[in-house]
Amino acid sequence: MASIKIPTPLRAYTGGQSEVQVSGAHVGEVLNDLTTQFPELRQHLFSDDKLRDFVNVFIGEEDIRFLDGLDTEVGASDKLRIIPSIAGG
């Protein structure tokens, strides 16, 4: 089963877990599984079912935006990570 690392600010919604086991053949399915396990995460990751602009998802060292986005395939042993863009104004 693949795993996904949760950024510190969102660990309040995963019971403090920094890493969660997730299932799915594609990144979109993995994120759906994650937000099914922890529904409060969804509003912080998605807006109108699209990944928010300042939410970055990596498989290993690769940003999925430079792969196939939410259609990027996920292997059983892949390690994913959510990395927020930190911005202010």
Binding site: P9, F54, G88, G89
Partner: peptide
């Protein structure tokens, strides 16, 4: 958490700050 400055502006979050912010941070 994180810090940032507001040059020539109050230390109050802007709308840009809110849109890009994270809870529990």
């Amino acid at each position: 958490g994180y810090f940032h400055s507001h040059p020539n502006s109050p230390a109050v979050p802007s709308e840009f700050d809110r849109v890009h912010a994270w809870p529990h941070f």
